[in-house]
């Protein structure tokens, strides 16, 4: 009975906090980093972020190119699944060889799981033989919230016109088990394959799976 009461109380508390967090995504679009949104419906919000090696990436400058956004927390078991198997690195190589700009984004706040500074990010990527175009540091989580990124990993594909063509899970099997990777359908690969050849994307949005993004 006591457990039941506690359960009831906590459920109500949860309902209250949810109200507040539900608003976050909407506010994100008018945050300081967002300068404007793309012209089309589903336009990718524009942002500027520092890279791990001290440069700056402005999404607006990437117009005309395909862009992949990958939310990354190297300590999250779901991210570990795709890096220790080599799956993510393979995708990064395949996409960047085709001229796609691959941006790996770290939205973990200081003191939280997966938070890295530029040097740590660079060394982790080197150690994993990873090949993103850039690792971006989003330590205040503004860009993550702007895109309503919920999990690591979460994948977003942006067209050369600046339109979000895919947003969601990396693949179709929600697990932290490497053995599931070959059995799963990779949604990013599928969406890019379709969109880059002028076809309609059959699965433009899925529920992402992984660890929650460790926002401040």
């Amino acid at each position: 009975m006591k457990t039941m009461l506690i359960l009831a109380g906590l459920t109500m508390v949860a309902a209250c906090t949810m109200n507040a967090s539900g608003k976050v995504a909407e506010q994100g679009g008018s945050g300081a980093v967002a300068t404007e949104t793309g012209a089309s419906t589903g336009g990718a919000p524009l942002f500027t972020l520092p890279t791990a090696d001290g440069k700056t990436v402005n999404l607006a400058d990437l117009k005309g190119k395909w862009v992949v956004l990958e939310w990354w927390n190297h300590e999250c078991p779901f991210v570990v699944k795709h890096y220790s198997s080599g799956n993510m690195q393979k995708l990064q190589k395949e996409f960047t060889e085709k001229g796609v700009v691959w941006l790996t984004i770290n939205s973990s706040a200081p003191g939280k799981q997966g938070h890295v500074n530029g040097a740590q990010a660079t060394s982790l990527m080197k150690e994993k033989n990873a090949a993103p175009t850039h690792v971006l540091l989003d330590h205040d989580g503004k860009v993550g919230k702007m895109y309503d990124a919920k999990t690591t990993p979460q994948m977003i594909l942006i067209s050369p016109e600046g339109v979000v063509m895919y947003d969601g899970a990396i693949d179709s099997i929600r697990s932290a088990n490497i053995a599931d990777i070959p059995k799963a359908e990779n949604y990013l690969v599928k969406a890019y394959g379709e969109a880059s050849t002028g076809q309609a994307v059959t699965t433009p949005k899925t529920q992402p799976y992984g660890c929650s993004v460790k926002y401040p």
Binding site: L10, A14, M18, V24, D148, T151, S212, V213, K214
Partner: peptide
């Protein structure tokens, strides 16, 4: 019966304790 957890805007369903 599960309960809800919130954190960073992501909502989880499960068990505590």
């Amino acid at each position: 019966a599960p309960r809800r957890f919130t954190g960073g805007g992501a909502v989880g369903y499960g068990y505590e304790g």
